[in-house]
Simulated scan of single mutants.
Amino acid sequence: MKDKTILTAESVTAGHPDKLCDTIADTVLDCCLEHDPNARVACEVLATAGKFVVAGEISALTIPDISSIVRDTVRRAGYNCRDFDVEVLIHPQSPDIADAVADSGQAGAGDQGIMYGYACSETENLLPLPVVLAHRLTALLTCARTMGRISGLRPDGKAQVSVEYVFGAPRRISAIVLSCQHAEDKDLSQLREELLEFVIQPALRIFPADEDTEIFINPSGRFVLGGIEADTGLTGRKLMVDTYGGLAPHGGGALSGKDGTKVDRSGAYMARCIAKNIVAAGLAEKCTVALAYAIGRADPVAVDVDTHLTGTYSDKLLEQAVRCFFDLTPAGMIHTLQLNQPIFADACNYGHFTRANLPWEQTGQAGKFAELCAQLDHGDGGG
C-alpha cells in the first residue's frame, strides 16, 4: 500500500445534458412499470440543441406519451426552452430476447456481462469519501438554484473532489473543482462568494477543507452557454458518476433506461447490496463483489468476492455464503430489490448508491449473513 495517494471523483447536476437524458430514460421506464410491472424497457436518449431523440425497445401493456415525458423532464430540470423537436423511435423487444427472459422463476438474464459492487467503511453510506463529497456538492448546487439561495444559477454543473489518503485512510481534501452555468449578467466574484457560503462549506461539513485545499470555481471563467444548448447529452455516459467515481471496477454496462431483467442494472445493484451488507456486518473494511451472467441463463456463471485483505473470513468462504444467502437469478434480484416498481427516476441523479431508502442500499440482512458465515466457518452450514 502506498503511504500517500490522491483519489478523485466527480459528480454532475441533474441539469447536465447526459444526466438529463438518463432522467428521461428512467422516467419512461417508471411510467411503463406503473401500468405493467413486467414491462421490458431498454430506452436510450440523445439530446442536442433543438432536438431530442428517444430510441429503443419497449414491450409493455401501455406505452407512455414519451414526447410529454421529455418536455416535462426538461422543464423540471430547470430549462425554460420550449422550442425543440422530440423524435421517438421505439419498437418492441426482440422475441428471441423476450423468450430468454420469459416471466418465470427461472427467467434468464437479458444479456451477458460482468457487474461490480463496492462498499467501504470510510463514510456512513459505505462509499469512498471523494464520491460522497462530489455528490454533496452537486446536490447542494442544484438546491441553491431551486431554493433561490443563489440568483442567476442555471441547471448545468459539475463538481470534482480530490482527497489525499495516507496509508489507505482519507487525511485531507487536496482540491475541489466546481463549475456551474450562470446568467450572463452574474458577477463572478459574487458568485464565488455565494458558492463558498451556500454550497462548498455545507457540503464539506462531514469532512472540512483546510487552508491548503485548492478550490477552483469555474476555472475556465464565464460559463453562460451550457446544458443542452451547448453540449450533446446521451444516456449511459456518466457511468463513474453513477457508481464509484472510478475508484472501484466497472463492467461497462450503463444503468438508466433498463428494466430489471437487464443484469447491467439488476446485477450492479445486487453486487452493491452484497458488498454493503458484508461491510455493514463488520466482515470487511472494504469489499468488491463481481457477478457475471450469460444471456438466457438464470444463475450467474461467476461470483467473486474480494475484501482486499481486510476480511474477517476468507474471500472463498464469503463467496460460498453469498451463493447460499442471496438469490442471484434475475427474477430473484428483481423481487429482492423491488425492481419492478417505478423507483428509478428518483435514483438516477447524484449517484445510484447514495440514498439510504433505496432497496439495494438496505443492510437489514447483514446480521443474518454474518451468522451464516460463522456457521460455514465451523463447518455446520451451507447448502
Score class of each variant (00 low, 15 high):
M1L: 12
K2L: 13
D3L: 07
D3Y: 12
I6T: 13
S11K: 06
G15A: 05
K19N: 07
D22N: 05
L33F: 09
E34V: 02
R40D: 04
C43S: 06
V45E: 07
T48I: 00
A49W: 06
A49G: 00
G50L: 05
A55R: 12
A60Y: 07
L61R: 14
D65P: 12
V70E: 10
V70S: 09
R71G: 01
V74G: 01
R75C: 03
R76L: 14
Y79H: 02
D83P: 09
L89E: 00
S94Q: 12
A100L: 13
V101S: 08
Q112V: 01
Q112R: 12
Q112D: 06
Q112F: 03
G113Q: 09
I114E: 12
Y116T: 04
A119M: 13
E122P: 07
L127C: 12
L129S: 07
P130L: 06
V131F: 06
V132M: 09
H135N: 15
T142P: 00
C143Q: 15
R145I: 02
S151T: 13
S151F: 07
L153P: 10
D156H: 01
Q160T: 00
S162L: 04
Y165E: 09
V166C: 14
F167H: 14
R172I: 00
I173D: 03
S179D: 03
Q181N: 11
A183G: 14
K186A: 12
K186T: 15
D187R: 12
D187G: 01
E193D: 05
E197L: 14
F198S: 06
P202A: 06
E214W: 00
I215A: 02
F216K: 07
F216E: 01
I217Q: 08
N218Y: 09
L225S: 13
E229Q: 13
E229D: 13
A230D: 06
D231A: 01
D231G: 00
L234Q: 13
R237M: 03
K238G: 04
M240D: 15
M240L: 14
V241D: 06
Y244W: 13
P249D: 08
P249H: 09
D264E: 14
S266W: 04
S266Y: 04
C273H: 15
C273D: 05
A281W: 13
E285S: 14
C287S: 03
A292N: 03
A292I: 01
Y293L: 02
A298N: 08
P300G: 03
D304L: 15
D306F: 10
D306K: 02
G311M: 13
K316C: 10
L317I: 10
A321K: 05
A321R: 06
T329H: 13
T336K: 14
L339W: 08
F344A: 01
A347P: 03
N349R: 10
N357W: 10
L358S: 10
W360P: 02
T363C: 15
Q365G: 00
C373N: 03
L376Q: 08
D377L: 00
G379F: 07
G381I: 01
G383I: 01
